[in-house]
Design a protein around this nucleic acid. Structure first.
Lengths: 114, 114
DNA sequence: CCGATCCATAACCTTCTGGCTATATAAACA
DNA sequence: TGTTTATATAGCCAGAAGGTTATGGATCGG
């Protein structure tokens, strides 16, 4: 799991960590702030933050004994770029769904006119 | 890790699995086809495929004793949607970089004219 | 029917993950 | 200086992840 992209995906594969990121999207927050919504110990949150930090998704500053965290979304851009390659595939799927629904509608219209 | 999005991110957090998906983006392939590029045992590939299948990223059909796999990109759309929320953050960062570079250039220009 | 092919499953091992408690560190505060 | 507050670290544990070899099952081909 040496590569950066794998680390990013792995960091995002945990709902607690995603919730932390969503909170940080609103602005800087301390470890205590981030821990509050969860029924988890403080060390557990610190571990999650370390995972996010190693993935480059979070950076920290210093404010007295606090270590405010802030979001660094750059690695998510890499995720977005990677995933974008598959856009045509899911759009194709939706296109087929549209065709199916249109055909279905056409069939129903034809039946109505019988 | 019960939720679908976590399962998708976890599935994507492995370079072997991402390579398999990239191969499948080119078209259907058998397990043997998919295993060929890797220095891994066949059961290892089967395990990876099972992870991808449980994440909904891959589906399989039947062709004699073969089980051709094909890509299902729909879960990636969910990933794309989730990640999109952070676009403004990474773009803001790039904007700040642009401002920084522009200011830097302005300073250099000013120094040259001294 | 029999061997070869394709793939899945079982059993096992090691490493990683995510949680805990207890403790250490660092800075503020009284 | 001693206490409280904020956070990190250490040590432990259970379960999941990712690999292996060995084996089983389905299907084609002779």
């Amino acid at each position: 799991m040496a590569d950066a992209l794998s680390a990013t995906f792995a960091a995002l594969a945990d709902p607690t960590r995603r919730a932390i990121l969503e909170r940080l999207a609103l602005g800087e927050a301390t470890v205590m702030d981030l821990a509050a919504p969860f029924d988890l110990s403080q060390p557990a949150i610190s571990k999650h933050l370390k995972v996010l930090e190693r993935a480059g998704l979070v950076a920290r500053s210093r404010d007295a004994q606090r270590r405010p965290c802030h979001l660094v979304a750059a690695p998510m851009q890499d995720v977005a770029t990677w995933v974008e390659r598959y856009r045509q595939h899911w759009e194709a799927r939706l296109d087929r769904l549209e065709v199916y629904l249109r055909d279905l509608q056409a069939t129903e219209d034809a039946e109505e006119s019988e």
